[in-house]
Design a protein around this nucleic acid. Structure first.
Length: 800
RNA sequence: GGGCAAGUGGUGGAAUUGGCAUACACGAGAGACUUAAAAUCUCUUGGCCGUAAGGCUGUGAGGGUUCAACUCCCUCCUUGCCCACCA
């Protein structure tokens, strides 16, 4: 037979699959399997991260296909976003043209990998047929009160006159011109994801097949914390200042309270005080700082006394009210009670400004009473309540509950839950995104575009330079419109949607990509959804997955679907490293997948990617590993010339053991050990030869990993049609059991002999055989046997 | 600071979940084939002692549980990822 010519073979079978629509998925009565990999941003070139992600998904998908499932395996492009605008500015093209060119190039590269996609279902989020449904969803949310507009602080570069994402603020300056970034209030569109916070948290329990750490990350992000709201009264006018705390047990140690600089009450508190001017100056200074600067951890905490006092409701103590930058308006009530003895930040702040401290929790191990003067840092551990009136002596965890209950009864406070999760800001002052389908009418106010007028299409020409705010605002034909209600002249919203919106429901669109009466056809989604296996990078563990879960729940509430969670099983693949570092342009350590395909072929690249490491862990790129993978394929290739009429029994047994192991491994995404088992089988074949039967089963099992290669061998063996239809091999249980097993014999924990025993021999028989073994007797000598342990077919242990 | 992973030969990684540590591969070494090289095939390959048989030792460090620990428990170290003035 000729040599393995991967170039010819890969082109041939890619054409074959395309021509025969081998991976076309259609609704049927067979059990379905929806296998999905996160769709890429079309940068034009695929990188090794893509290769890994899509190889993993493709192998699993093909494996499920071989098992007889009706597999849906689609691909598309997350095509809106900033890079297209940047590229357009740089190359003087249009974002649309640039993006479409990139999509084409990327498709070509993906197709060269031999991925089993149903390309007929391809979606692209920048296509009006796609984004009109973004707009449709947005309007539905608006109608349900889940989309709303609110003024909010954004990072603002005064020189470029544009908003900046947090990532674009570098050392407090604009990434482009280094001008100091300011905070500016702008009216922005939000989605009320907080309306779903309980369900988003609760339903994480349903996700038994998600990695634990993703569940942990989502849980932290939603950030439910139970505590108390405590009402401090103002000394001057009895006004109430609510404070949120999770440490009600320390309330007797609260020696001052601190407001966030943005807190509206601050202005009242300082009015007429001698400090007024100074405090205003301080607030102004803080507000100039961008969030990024303010929250960088090593910056010293700064604050100032307001001149006013509050009353601690549990002991009627008069305590000062301060303002400090380390208190955040967005969390809790924007006010904290400071307990310097039991919170490190408060401790440092109190030391700095000479504020009072009182110990109220005594460590259990401490005998004599702990004094504030003795502390060199805050004591944040558990202990016994002291200086806490009627609660003295209680362990603080009991104290926390008792105090909370007492405060609620006496109406000093209220048991309360706070959440970290914020509403989702989706407005972007950019061009290359889905236009938010809203209209401003002088008479009717904010009105949504009529459904029949969707999509609101992006104007083909917009003057964008990356500077000076929203490009759509400069397109008169776009902005000028009529109010859908009163038909008067009106103004169109010029913000576009954050691209996370687009990717929050694309998995539903794949179910019926051509559907024109809604984002997806209900009956198709009913068959295909939820996604059985989702595969992607850990970097999407929080936002993308959370937003997708949110949208799914929203669709359920609209009655369009009947499940809570979109992704039954999730696999987060590890990154591809080179010399221990992440491959990236800036590091200059990129290995280009296309050049590897040129040199070795896609099958070798896929094989190496899957063999080098388990999918979840990081993968160290190794050129020599590619040689190894290529060598293995050639080794398999050569077998076809030396087939016997009938394989020896040991090889047949090896085959059946391999089928069992490989099937289990494929199911569990242990592709690296599955491949190792195939290599072992090949080694066995090299020892004593294979027949057509053994060889056929080997290449069927290898076919999800090296599909072109195996198709060719399958055909060489005289089969008609594709190996896809061959079906996954089954193993014969009888061939797995040998008559005898070799078991190690341990004496006092050390292996001293290896003896062959009949399979499943009884303890008595084993004892009798062991008694005749010279080596064992040598080690036991005449010492009495204390214990004789047999782990069936595994190990024999003797203790003397 | 909080959370989650992980740490095994020269390298990537295995280990049926408490049962022979290092499967499989890379690399290295030796041999066969060859005029030669490449390719291919076969063998060796954790460390120490030993001519050998064999022995001792060995999974980040230290302790513990057990007949038996890479695996479980405690303390510590290191690396990676995510979150973070979160009250």
């Amino acid at each position: 037979m000729a040599e393995y010519n991967f170039k010819e073979i890969e082109e041939k079978w890619q054409k074959y699959w395309h021509k025969n629509k081998s991976f076309k998925a259609e609704v049927s009565s067979r059990p379905k399997f929806y296998c999905l990999e996160m769709f890429p941003y079309p940068s034009g070139k695929i990188h090794m991260g893509h290769v890994r992600n899509y190889s993993i998904g493709d192998v699993y998908s093909r494996y499920k296909l071989a098992q007889g499932f009706n597999v849906l395996h689609p691909m598309g492009f997350d095509a809106f976003g900033q890079p297209a605008e940047n590229a357009a500015i740089k190359n003087k093209t249009k974002p649309g043209a640039w993006t479409h060119k990139c999509i084409e190039e990327m498709e070509t590269e993906l197709k060269k990998m031999g991925l089993s996609y149903d390309w007929d279902r391809e979606v692209s989020t920048c296509d009006p047929d796609y984004y009109r449904w973004n707009q449709w969803i947005f309007i539905k949310m608006f109608e349900k009160g889940l989309a709303y507009k609110k003024a909010s602080g954004v990072n603002w570069c005064p020189s470029c006159a544009t908003t900046l994402a947090n990532e674009e603020v570098i050392d407090g300056g604009c990434w482009r011109c280094h001008t100091k970034v300011e905070q500016k209030d702008l009216d922005q569109w939000y989605l009320k994801i907080t309306g779903y916070k309980e369900r988003l948290l609760e339903d994480l329990n349903q996700l038994k097949l998600w990695p634990e750490r993703v569940i942990a990350m989502q849980t932290n992000w939603i950030g439910k914390s139970s505590g108390c709201e405590i009402y401090f009264r103002r000394k001057d006018n009895n006004g109430v200042i609510p404070v949120f705390t999770t440490r009600a047990d320390t309330i007797f140690g609260a020696t001052y309270i601190v407001l966030a600089p943005e807190h509206p009450t601050v202005l009242e508190l300082i009015k007429g005080q001698p400090q007024e001017k100074e405090v205003l100056k301080f607030i102004d200074k803080v507000s100039q700082e961008s969030k990024v600067v303010r929250s960088s951890s090593d910056v010293k905490k700064e604050g100032i006394f307001t001149g006013s006092y509050a009353i601690n409701p549990v002991n009627n103590e008069v305590i000062p009210i301060w303002v400090a930058d380390y208190v955040l308006m967005e969390y809790g009530t924007g006010v904290i009670m400071a307990v310097p003895t039991h919170d490190q930040r408060d401790f440092l702040f109190a030391k700095e400004h000479g504020l009072a401290m009182r110990v109220v929790i005594q460590p259990f191990t401490q005998q004599c009473e702990l004094c504030a003067e003795d502390l060199s840092e805050a004591y944040e551990g558990d202990g016994r309540q002291i200086n806490s009136a009627q609660f003295n002596g209680l362990p603080n965890l009991e104290g926390k509950a008792a105090i909370a209950e007492w405060m609620e009864k006496t109406r000093i406070g209220k048991i309360q839950t706070h959440w970290r999760l914020r509403d989702w800001l989706i407005s972007r002052q950019r061009y290359w995104g889905t236009p938010i389908p809203m209209i401003y009418c002088d008479k009717c106010g904010v009105v949504s575009v009529a459904y029949e007028d969707l999509p609101v299409e992006l104007p083909k020409d917009a003057p964008f330079t990356g500077e000076g705010g929203s490009p759509l605002g400069k397109v008169k034909e776009f902005v000028d419109c009529f109010c859908p209600k009163c038909k008067a002249k009106a103004r169109r919203e010029t913000d576009t949607m954050a691209t996370f919106f687009d990717s929050s429901w694309y998995f539903l669109r794949y179910c019926s990509p051509e559907f024109t009466n809604g984002p997806f056809e209900v009956k198709d989604a009913k068959y295909w959804m939820p996604v059985d296996q989702y595969i992607g990078g850990i970097e999407h563990a929080i936002l993308h997955l959370l937003y997708s879960r949110f949208f799914t729940k929203f669709f359920k509430d609209l009655g369009m679907i009947d499940f809570d969670e979109p992704f039954t099983k999730l696999l987060t693949q590890g990154m591809v490293l080179k010399d221990g570092e992440v491959m990236s342009k800036s590091r200059g350590n990129i290995v280009d997948p296309d050049s590897m395909i040129q040199r070795y072929g896609a099958d070798t690249l896929r094989l190496f990617m899957l063999f080098a490491a388990p999918p979840e862990t990081e993968l160290e790129w190794d050129d020599r590993g590619m040689d190894g993978a290529f060598k293995f394929l050639n080794r398999v290739w050569r077998i076809q010339d030396n087939l016997k009429d009938k394989a020896d029994e040991p090889v047949v047994r090896s085959l059946h053991k391999a089928i069992k192991k490989i099937s289990e491994d494929m199911e569990a995404f242990k592709f690296n050990t599955a491949i190792a088992s195939m290599m072992e089988l090949v080694n066995a074949i090299y020892q004593s030869g294979a027949d057509k039967e053994v060889y056929s089963k080997l290449i069927i099992m290898l076919s999800p990993i090296a599909p072109h290669f195996c198709e060719e061998l399958w055909q060489n063996l005289g089969n008609q049609g594709s190996i896809i239809k061959a079906g996954w091999p089954k193993f014969d249980q009888k061939l797995l059991v040998e008559d005898t097993v070799e078991m190690p014999v341990q004496i006092n924990g050390k292996v001293r002999s290896k003896i062959s025993f009949p399979t499943n021999a009884s303890v008595e028989i084993i004892q009798a055989i062991v008694a005749k073994d010279e080596k064992v007797q040598q080690w036991i000598q005449a010492k009495p046997i204390k214990k004789f342990i047999v782990v069936p077919n595994k190990i024999v242990t003797i203790v003397v």
